[in-house]
Amino acid sequence: MRILVTGGGTGGHIYPALAFIRYVEKLQPDAKFLYVGTHRGLENKIVPESGIPFKTIKIQGFKRSLSLDNVKTVQLFLKSIKRAKEIIREFKPDVVIGTGGYVSGAVVYAAAKLKIPTIVHEQNSVPGITNKFLSRYVDRVAICFPDAAQYFPAKKTVLVGNPRAQEVVTSGKSEVLQEYQLNPDQPTVLIFGGSQGALKINQAVASALPQFAKKDYQVLYASGERYYADLQKTLTGQTASNLSIQPYIKNMTDVMANVDLLIGRAGATSIAEFTALGLPAILIPSPYVTNDHQTKNAQSLVAVGAVKMITDAELSADNLVAAVDEIMGDAELKETMAQASKKEGIPDAAERLLHLVNQII
């Protein structure tokens, strides 16, 4: 099988694609892959490091206001389609899968025009403009949230989930918390704001640490590289055995499998991971994303009782600690949330996506 994958710009588009590739490689070692991205996107660094063949095309997004840049965008889009067709003809894929971002728009559209079987994978509850556009041309639309179905043609749309979930469920209980000077046998809360951190979450957590230091649960906080040094200066002399502050957690999936509560943003990949594990969560959606999709992601889980939500505007040290105490201090509530989270998870997402591929090729 020859599979061309395209998607870029953010980790939310890249990591599901890589998880799917790794899953297929285990089942079919002779499968061939090609990843097409842009030279400026995050994929330009992440994909080559994964050892997957990688090619780029040049493209940019539309401005939301009237701009002469949009004329250049149209010109680049047309050129990128031509280049994408050249790459497709050279690689000869059996299927082309787009996971989002402007680059997938050109590549998947080109593949559809060449009559190559195509799939778009939408990670969020509210789709972006690229996948809405592509849904008219592709063979199948794979979604991760049931709420997303309303935006796509019903006959093409299938609930698949996020392939990252299938990687996470292979992680099990371990002594990994010892790496962060914490007790593996003590209830633990994991807090993070994404790979780069989040200013509002950082401010609230920094103010809340003196309160957390007095609790009978542990807190592992990944501040993000950009905030770590300043946070360390702020907390000089304020240490406690139940607190661990790190700039970044490299083995996040292993850590997630060994904590009791997660606090963070409401990105699609993070949600796929913690629901696959059946973790309760407190979500603080980023207000700075397209179509406010993180809020809608979180609301879909609030509705079924899997998470509590605090808006970015409402976030403070006091209400963060209060929300954590409510869950960590009530075993029945925590278990009810965990069960609801587990029901929303799709731990066989990569398998479902591969099944969809086999249907159309």
Rank of each mutant, 00 (worst) to 15 (best):
R140M: 00
V289W: 03
I346T: 15
S341P: 07
V95K: 14
R352Q: 05
Y180G: 05
A106N: 06
K342V: 05
E326W: 09
R226L: 11
K343H: 13
F62A: 08
D139F: 01
D348C: 12
R226N: 11
A84C: 07
I143M: 02
Q339V: 07
I271Y: 05
P117C: 04
Q232P: 01
V108R: 14
F91Y: 02
F145T: 11
T311G: 06
N70T: 10
T99R: 13
L320S: 09
S80E: 10
N183Q: 12
G11V: 04
T188W: 01
I129A: 08
L18W: 05
M337Q: 05
D292C: 02
T269Y: 05
L301N: 10
I87Q: 08
I3C: 08
V219Y: 01
V168Y: 03
V158M: 00
Q186H: 07
I245K: 07
L301C: 06
Y151M: 00
V205W: 06
V158D: 01
I263F: 03
K63R: 15
E90V: 01
T157A: 00
G267Q: 10
H355G: 07
Q246A: 09
E179F: 04
Y288K: 12
D254E: 12
E314I: 07
D254T: 00
L243I: 12
I191W: 02
V168P: 01
V169Y: 07
D318H: 14
H355C: 05
G8V: 06
T269I: 00
V176S: 01
L76S: 08
K334A: 11
I310L: 14
N258W: 04
G267W: 01
Q166H: 10
Q294G: 03
V158H: 00
E175G: 11
P285W: 04
Q339P: 08
A313N: 15
H293T: 10
S341C: 05
R140Q: 03
T170E: 12
Y180T: 05
A276R: 14
K82E: 14
L353H: 09
F133Q: 09
S300Y: 02
A31T: 13
S195V: 06
K113Q: 04
V120Y: 01
G172K: 13
T56I: 06
M252R: 04
P287G: 03
K32M: 12
S135H: 06
A84L: 04
L333G: 07
F77W: 07
S223Q: 05
